[in-house]
């Protein structure tokens, strides 16, 4: 089937899509956007997190046909050209990235948390918001640092 999706603000079309395919597969294999990662394909790891109509979801659990006509924002869509988003910048500065596999999903999820809170969220709130994003490398401390830094910078604006 043919599917039309607005990805990072741009209308995109994919043809000959298998009906059981996930949004994640379509993004990575058909639309040239490998930012969202494929790790578990069962909603457990969060590395495929993208915005669907402004709400963070696991792209591996959205059937591609369910995205028809809707708006998707991936980690690629957060930066403005070469200029990184505040959350992306904070991850780099805090050393919150090791192998980087979990990073795109964490950045989208953290971006959503920061967008919906005023000021710097409490640690418990950050942990709860990121509970569905697994990282095998960092031990999470630097990820928390990055979220606090990005939130503080946004609050100071």
């Amino acid at each position: 089937m043919r599917v039309n999706v607005i990805v990072n603000g741009e209308a995109m079309t994919a043809d000959d899509v298998w009906e059981g395919e996930s949004l994640l597969y379509a993004l990575r294999e058909r639309l040239g956007l490998p930012g969202a990662k494929n790790a578990c394909e069962q909603g457990e790891c969060g590395s495929c997190t993208v915005y669907l109509d402004g709400i963070p979801v696991c792209a591996c659990l959205v059937a591609i046909g369910q995205a028809e006509g809707r708006s998707v924002v991936t980690v690629e869509g957060l930066a403005d050209g070469e200029s990184l988003d505040e959350v992306q910048r904070a991850f780099v500065e805090c050393g919150a990235v090791q192998c980087g596999f979990c990073t795109p999903g964490l950045i989208v999820q953290a971006h959503s948390l920061i967008a919906s809170t005023s000021g710097v969220p409490e640690d418990a709130e950050i942990r709860e918001a990121l509970a569905g994003n697994l990282c095998r490398c960092t031990g999470y401390e630097k990820i928390l640092d990055a979220v606090r830094l990005a939130a503080a910078r946004k609050a100071a604006l």
Binding site: E19, G20, S22, E41, Q42, G43, C58, C60, L61, V62, A63, G65, Q66
Partner: peptide, 19 residues
Amino acid sequence: GGTDVMVEINLDKGRPAAL
């Protein structure tokens, strides 16, 4: 939401005739 249905399809535990 697909949070049960898609897991089954992704893990090839059964393919529905139609969604």
